[in-house]
Design a protein around this nucleic acid. Structure first.
Lengths: 139, 139
DNA sequence: TCGCTCTTCACGGAAAGCTTCACGGCCCGG
DNA sequence: CCGGGCCGTGAAGCTTTCCGTGAAGAGCGA
């Protein structure tokens, strides 16, 4: 099952904002777009959705832009995916009464596993991992 | 992320065939379709794909139909999903060099978790679960 | 007021997903 | 050897989602 690039783009944008989180300054949309290789006008829509889901906030006017609404450690990949697609993984069987109950339970377990995995990946640890990589070169 | 109904249909069909596995007899497409609430002509295509992936096999002519190629215990939800969509979960980021490495590793972990979960759900245990349900009423 | 930025909405092509149809091929019983 | 039942296959609609573009409107600072 291929996921859409939308959640990928969203995750990149959040990561870009996470890197700037300590500075407390807003980042411009176009700047983020170029840095992460995302079509600018598309990123605008994505950030707008992230904003309505309270993951980021925006500042208008000169020196405006976007910043994270919470520390990177409190934003997970699951949050981003839910902001884009409603659910991390949504098997259509769950809403279909014609599907045998045993099978629906199997789908539900798969969904729960994916959700649990996505929610345990927060952006602070993603940031930390890139730091760890540098250290590894010294081993 | 909504999954397609295709993998849902495929899973239902496999479950239907799994129930008949002990009898060793083939089940007709239209019969399966009605029982599981799947458009008949669509199910044909799905079964065809399942066949090329060696999950089911077919018998032609009168008293023909489809049967499982292996015991239900050796077919997992992951097998069915891979037969339909190539991968259980496929984040586009993994093939995109522009995506930061740390983020790609996060996606890879999510993918691995989903795959592991899907591969641990085989159809024999789905069948067994419906049996367990009856037993629970006696507790 | 001017310039910068976000905000909002509407549009469009492209692709994928879902479904149905039509026709051909194989197997069996008579 | 002939006919009916069933699988096999490709193609054609239709719908929805994805992806991206464009332009007009609103807030903020200088």
């Amino acid at each position: 099952m291929k996921l859409s690039v939308k959640s990928d783009y969203a995750a990149r944008a959040v990561l870009g904002l996470a890197r700037a989180f300590v500075t407390g300054s807003a980042r411009k949309v176009e700047e983020l777009a170029l840095e992460q290789g995302i079509p600018g006008n598309y990123l605008v829509q994505i950030l707008l959705e992230l904003k309505t889901k309270q993951l980021v906030r925006s500042v208008r006017g000169k020196d405006g832009g976007y910043l994270l609404a919470r520390p990177p450690g409190e934003i997970t990949l699951g949050d981003v995916m839910r902001a884009m697609h409603g659910e991390v993984l949504d098997p259509p069987a769950l809403g279909d009464p014609q599907c045998p109950l045993e099978l629906r339970e199997a789908w539900a377990r798969l969904k729960a596993a994916a959700e649990q995995a996505a929610d345990s990946l927060d952006f602070q640890s993603v940031l930390d991992q890139s730091g760890d990589r540098e250290k590894m070169y010294y081993i």
